[in-house]
Design a protein around this nucleic acid. Structure first.
Lengths: 272, 272
DNA sequence: TCGATAATGAACATTGTGTTCGATAAAATA
DNA sequence: TATTTTATCGAACACAATGTTCATTATCGA
């Protein structure tokens, strides 16, 4: 019943390593933080004071967000809680937003590391069995206090935009591949991907706003119920099922491990 | 093919007058502006100076938004362009956001007036033939400069939230009615309405962000393609089509005109 | 014309931002 | 350990924008 969607998930898993939009990592500002992370990964050296300071800032921001929400936090608040000097903050981040984004990247990394571990544990030489959507709901649920304090607020827009781009980035290649086999789909490809991502995000935010009255599993099920038929309709009737044969179920080249080692690398140092 | 959706639209038309969430009008702040509008509608008297000032502020804000976007506008900018005194501004609005919301209500009123006119002109004694979704796209297209300058920005969140509540308000009753005929729909009612509204808004913002590459008609069609099957799936299989018979096509009591006179009234003075 | 009321604009207090710089502390390095 | 390098500190500062106050002036409705 959900073949169409499962197919997309599979291909989306598979092709995630083939492209990486550098712009996805951060909206526009903090190329600095990315660069610092790169330096760290490459040279394996970083002044302890730096990591200590950044860690303190992170923790301060996170705890403050959960207390009073992002909007009401002032730089001084962060400084007080982190017990750091004013100039220190500005030596690391351009402004409050950059710190928030940087913290958010941490969460993203955490999520991807978890996924990778999960994936490795389930790897039986076959294609991945990990349901990304479900895992995404689980991850959101685990950190619901944080996400709730951010999403829906004014500045949540920034984060949601970021999330949108991130997810879209993961979806656009597989969807485009599937679409290519269709002559002229009734709904343009870009719209379909945008629609899917928006749907997912809307369910996540609803879930958070309403104090997660259902399990992550239920939300995953709901998402599938709502979008599966949309995808089918977007492809046009049912003929596209033949098109799927182009994509075999086996991983084309190399092992899944090799695939996922790429997956990890892509989280650091996008060439720009 | 689109019977399900058309049914919803129809019932949604019909029941729009039966409820009005006062909270929908404005997030939390400007109860003042609402009150002023009410006074204006009821007593038919308002100092010319007041309306003149408010009009100037509106126009200043709108032109500034289209020039530099909402974020970069300062109160002083508005004052300069409107050629008004600082204290005058604060006598009318709590802050910039309140002015924006107030301006937005103007747009909403405009939209609803247009709808009402359109509806009256097509009223042949039958049920309405107006496609709200299409009209919404048209209206957005007409004012695309404004909407584009707002949506997607940080503060656009506020407006989008507003729009979300507004549309949801229109949808929730008809959807709930339809749902009631089902024993236990696979997707909870609130999620379905939230999902539908989010989908609509996501298409609108995509349309704006990409400089409206398709006609409003095409977007309306796309929306239907994507959501029709979702609605069907949310109801559960196809049995619900029988449930529709509960709702006759005729307006239960009174004429359509009577219905729409209610529709107009509800835009003013929600009891609170 | 007159009483009421809205607009004016300058002055002000306040808050938060982002920068600068010499002194200090703590790392890395040899 | 001694030396060099580098991060942190913190107070001071300039600045931008907010929102308030109030005596004065202009404009309105009747």
């Amino acid at each position: 019943m959900n073949i169409v969607f499962d197919k997309i998930i599979t291909i989306f898993h598979r092709s995630v390593n083939n492209q990486y939009d550098p712009d996805c990592s951060l909206p526009n500002k903090s190329a600095s933080s990315v660069r610092q992370k790169c330096r760290f990964m490459k040279e394996k050296k970083e002044d302890r004071r730096i990591s200590r300071t950044r860690k303190l800032m992170h923790e301060a921001l996170m705890s403050l967000i959960m207390e009073k929400g992002y909007e009401d936090i002032t730089v001084q608040d962060i400084l007080d809680r982190a017990d750091a000097g004013r100039s220190t903050f500005y030596a690391h981040y351009r402004d409050k937003d950059e710190l928030l984004l940087s913290s958010f990247e941490h969460l993203r990394d955490l999520f991807e590391q978890q996924q990778q571990a999960l994936f490795a544990s389930r790897n039986t030489g076959q294609d991945p069995e990990v349901n990304i959507i479900l895992e995404l709901f689980r991850h959101t649920g685990e950190h619901h206090k944080l996400y709730k304090a951010i999403a829906g607020k004014k500045s949540g827009e920034m984060i949601l935009k970021y999330l949108h781009r991130y997810l879209k980035n993961l979806l656009i290649v597989p969807v485009a591949k599937l679409m290519k086999s269709r002559k002229s789909p009734p709904v343009p490809i870009e719209i379909t991907t945008h629609y899917l991502v928006s749907s997912l995000i809307s369910l996540i935010t609803w879930w958070l706003d309403n104090n997660m009255p259902y399990s992550a599993e239920k939300m995953d099920e709901i998402f599938r119920i709502l979008t599966t038929s949309s995808i089918e309709a977007a492809f046009g009737n049912n003929k596209e099922i033949n098109g799927y044969d182009i994509f075999s179920n086996r991983h084309p080249e190399g092992s899944v491990k090799a695939f996922y080692s790429n997956f990890i690398d892509r989280n650091c140092c996008p060439e720009q």
